[in-house]
């Protein structure tokens, strides 16, 4: 399985994902299912997983602070009634 090493790396990297804000959809996307979408991304997914892991690491060692809970995704996706 040539992809197995890659998959293990991503599993390990994504295991650090943390946060508190709720998702915004009437449908629960499923945390595991969201992460899998990175696995499916191949090389692009690998780069993404690297950044994801790096961000987590920076937060963990205190170099970077936890970003605000809301990312403003509502506004940009036109999901706000304001």
């Amino acid at each position: 399985m040539p992809k197995l090493g890659f998959q293990v790396l991503i599993f390990a990297a994504l295991a650090y994902a943390t946060g508190t804000a709720p998702a915004h959809a009437y449908l629960d996307p499923g945390t595991g299912s969201m992460i899998l979408q990175v696995l499916i991304g191949g090389i692009a997914g690998l780069a993404l997983a690297g950044r994801f892991y790096w961000n987590r690491l920076m937060v963990l060692i205190g170099v970077r602070s936890e970003p605000p809970a809301q990312t403003g995704a509502d506004e940009v996706s036109g999901r706000s009634d304001r």
Partner: peptide
């Protein structure tokens, strides 16, 4: 992955967005 993250309450969506999904 669903088993791994079941009930974790983590906001992966936000983390993915920040990493450039």
């Amino acid at each position: 992955l669903q088993r791994r993250y079941a009930g974790s309450g983590r906001n992966v969506r936000k983390g993915l967005a920040e990493a450039g999904f």
